[in-house]
């Protein structure tokens, strides 16, 4: 578990490497993100400015400061893509104000294994990904509406001929009849709504980082439409090191 960064898919294109290899890339605007909140496992770990929290005690006493309680886990909450105050709720504005930031359209939390080093109000930029070879990208896929089983569950098509009539793209049989356990099994894959779901693509290579414009070029496609929001994190996949058998020379 490591700190990631929030971003926006700009679109796909291709670039050429020096040796002429053509690389399909997705250009992602990653950050800058504001740290809206830092969560700590114990109250003692809070940074100086984070030690107190105010609570509304009603009309008489108004807002009263009290020691902030521990969150019970380590996490960093990031905000990305500022939005105007007129479309933000008061709760969003108040929460962002504590970090000295504007309200943002996307707020996500990253759980961490150890106490985070970033502080509330700091900025996380694409420089975070420098030196990272591969990332996992979370996005919301494009909506496909109501789809049949072929598109939704990769069912096979039925024969176009050989006496088949009107049943080319249908799902086929649903269950069994005349037996003790008759009926349609639970979880039977059928036609229905497909898309608009959270999908993670693992192990996408970071081709290039443009720190000046907060851009990162990823090898391959990421979920969702252009301008869709993404979460980028160092990949969970572990690069497999295959040891050469004894006596075998490895070509470098």
């Amino acid at each position: 578990m490591s700190l990631g960064i929030l971003g926006k898919k700009l679109g796909m294109t291709q670039i050429f490497k020096e040796d002429g290899t053509c690389v399909p890339v997705t250009i992602v605007q990653a950050g800058p993100c504001k740290v809206l909140q830092v969560k700590m496992a114990t109250a003692a770990e809070f940074a100086e400015g984070d030690k107190t929290a105010s609570v509304n005690r009603g009309k008489k006493s108004g807002r009263v400061a009290r020691p902030r309680r521990a969150d019970g886990y380590y996490a960093v909450q990031l905000g990305f893509d500022n939005k105007p105050a007129r479309v933000s709720s008061k709760a969003e504005l108040g929460h962002a104000k504590k970090a000295g930031a504007d309200a943002t359209r996307l707020v996500r939390e990253f759980r961490l294994a150890a106490a985070p080093t970033v502080k509330t109000g700091e900025e996380v930029t694409v420089k975070l990904l420098e030196g990272v070879k591969c990332v996992d990208v979370v996005g919301i896929t494009k909506g496909r509406g109501w789809t049949g089983t072929i598109k939704r569950h990769n069912f096979s098509q039925q024969p176009m001929s050989h006496g088949n009539s009107l049943n080319h793209r249908t799902g086929g049989g649903l269950g069994r009849q005349h037996s003790i356990s008759s009926g349609v099994p639970k979880g039977k894959r059928m036609a229905g709504h497909y898309g608009v779901e959270r999908v993670t693509v693992q192990n996408l290579e970071v081709v290039k980082i443009d720190a000046e414009r907060n851009l990162v070029y990823l090898h391959g496609a990421v979920p969702g439409h252009n301008r869709g929001y993404l979460v980028l994190q160092k990949t969970k996949k572990v690069a497999r090191v295959i040891a050469a058998p004894p006596g075998v020379k490895v070509k470098k």
């Binding site: 700009l10 679109g11 294109t13 670039i15 050429f16 250009i27 851009l215």
Partner: peptide, 10 residues
Amino acid sequence: NLLRQLELEH
């Protein structure tokens, strides 16, 4: 368009 701009640079 930013994407077109970036393409131009390459």
